[in-house]
Structures are given as structure tokens and as C-alpha cells.
Design a protein around this nucleic acid. Structure first.
Length: 155
DNA sequence: TACAACTCCGCTG
DNA sequence: CAGCGGAGTTGTA
């Protein structure tokens, strides 16, 4: 699994199990947070939540949260590659796989492990045949569709 | 060893 | 051609 550490001013660290966004009434996005490890006061968390909501409501294009990815080299590479995909753009599993000499299936798996879907835009990765491909069981393909649609209006 | 949010290639119609 | 199905690939649990 990929772990994330969110950092604001070196002294505050907050560990999350997962974060997900989901649809509510087909119109509004809500954010759900997983277990928070350690008894940290969650200034960072609150800020992140606030920023995430702004992002989903198109009030900002950036979620200004600094975070660190803990994982093996490949996971980090793939994650950094995902972060390079700009708003409204998509990449295929195959493209990323070739770049790092991985199998496309493996890229898919890494994307699936990334549960911070707003920070690491795994929803912007699609199949090479143009179809969306699968998505995390947390949000489902409908969430992927919705996120992409939302972002395309920002072009 | 089996699995995975895929892809390639050959076969059929 | 287009559509379908199976094999291939590779790090992780």
C-alpha cells in the first residue's frame, strides 16, 4: 500500500488511511476521510478538506496541501507522473507503463492503490482504447466520469 | 503463487 | 474492417 504523510511546517504530520470524494444527489461532491492515525490536531486536515471542497466547487484549481508519498520507487515515480497530468488532460495506462518500463496492468494497480484521488489524479488515467477503464471501489467509475467531466469544463 | 483500475494480437464473421 | 477472446507482463501480498 501507498502511505501518505501530509506535512505543513515540518512539525505537524498527519497520517491518513484514505480520502475519497463521492457523489451526493448527482450534483454535490462530498469528501470522506478515513481513519486518522495519531492524535494530531488536524489543522492540516481541515485545511485540506476545505481546499478539496473549493476544488470540487471550481473555486480553486489547486489544493494547497503539501504531502509526502511513502512507497517504493516505482510507486513514487508513477505518482509523480500522475501529478504531471494537467487539469482536463488524460493519459493512458500504457503511456505511463512504457515510460517506466512497467506493464500497464501494474500501473493500473498502482493507480488503484492511490486512494487520495484528489491529490494524485488517478482518475485522469484511462485505457488506451479510449474507454475509461475501472476505478477505485470507493467511488466507482461514475465518480471517475464525473471528475473528468468536471475538469474538462475548466479547459 | 495468484492477482491486478491493461494491452496486444490473432481469429472469426 | 470490427469485435471478441485469450495470452502476456511484472511488482506485490
Amino acid at each position: 500500500m501507498i502511505k501518505y504523510t501530509m506535512i505543513k511546517k515540518i512539525s505537524i504530520k498527519t497520517k491518513l488511511d484514505w480520502i475519497s470524494a463521492f457523489e451526493d444527489d448527482g450534483k454535490i461532491f462530498k469528501i470522506k476521510f478515513g481513519k486518522i492515525k495519531k492524535k494530531q490536531p488536524s489543522k492540516v486536515l481541515k485545511q485540506f478538506k476545505k481546499n478539496s471542497l473549493k476544488f470540487l466547487n471550481k473555486k480553486t484549481r489547486k489544493i494547497n496541501t503539501i504531502y509526502k508519498i511513502e512507497g517504493n520507487k516505482i510507486q513514487k515515480k508513477v505518482c509523480s507522473e500522475l501529478k504531471k497530468i494537467k487539469l482536463g488532460q488524460t493519459k493512458t495506462y500504457g503511456t505511463i507503463a512504457k515510460k517506466y518500463k512497467l506493464s500497464s496492468r501494474h500501473v493500473g494497480k498502482i493507480c488503484g492503490q492511490s486512494k487520495l484521488l484528489l491529490l494524485i489524479p488517478c482518475h485522469r488515467v484511462i485505457r488506451s482504447d479510449g474507454s475509461l477503464g475501472g476505478f477505485s471501489p470507493i467511488g466507482g467509475v461514475s465518480l471517475k466520469k464525473r471528475l473528468l467531466k468536471l475538469e474538462q469544463t475548466w479547459k
